[in-house]
Simulated assay, not measured.
Amino acid sequence: MLTLQCPYCGVQADETELAPGYEAHLKRYGPGSSPEEFESYMFARKNPKGVHFERWRHAYGCGKWFLAARDTNTLEVFGTYPAQSSAPPADLVAKIKLKRPEWEGYK
């Protein structure tokens, strides 16, 4: 079972308390964007085997959205951080690189 720690309230919540929000750090396109840009935002998602950054909501807790880094192959969670972050924190990236030296980094 997947267990994530909410960075806001500090609760270790299993996946039954959480709601997935799918891929994190998407570039959002709205009015004035080309049809191709909007289509890529709406429908094109990464589906990696390995390290992935995702959005989660602590639905049955504080209700806040947060971001998590985890390995989709092993379900290992590297850490969580606030949803307002524009990129993963440097210490989290360093932790991932330490455990997964072959990882190419956040893009």
Rank of each mutant, 00 (worst) to 15 (best):
M1P: 13
C6H: 09
G10D: 08
G10C: 03
G10S: 06
D14H: 07
Y22V: 04
E23I: 11
E23A: 06
H25Q: 10
H25A: 09
H25M: 10
K27D: 15
R28C: 05
Y29K: 01
G30E: 10
G30D: 11
P31N: 14
P31C: 10
P31V: 14
G32L: 05
G32W: 09
S33I: 08
S33G: 10
F38H: 10
E39W: 11
F43M: 02
A44L: 13
K46T: 15
P48A: 03
G50D: 04
V51S: 03
H52A: 10
E54T: 12
R55M: 13
R55L: 13
W56K: 00
R57Q: 14
A59K: 10
Y60I: 08
C62H: 09
W65P: 00
F66E: 05
L67D: 11
R70I: 11
D71I: 10
E76C: 05
E76R: 08
E76F: 11
V77R: 00
V77I: 15
F78N: 00
G79M: 00
T80E: 07
P82I: 07
P82S: 06
A83M: 07
A83R: 03
A83K: 03
S86V: 15
P88E: 01
P89Y: 02
P89T: 01
D91M: 00
L92E: 01
A94E: 12
A94Y: 07
K95N: 03
K95H: 09
I96T: 06
K97F: 09
L98V: 07
L98P: 03
E102R: 04
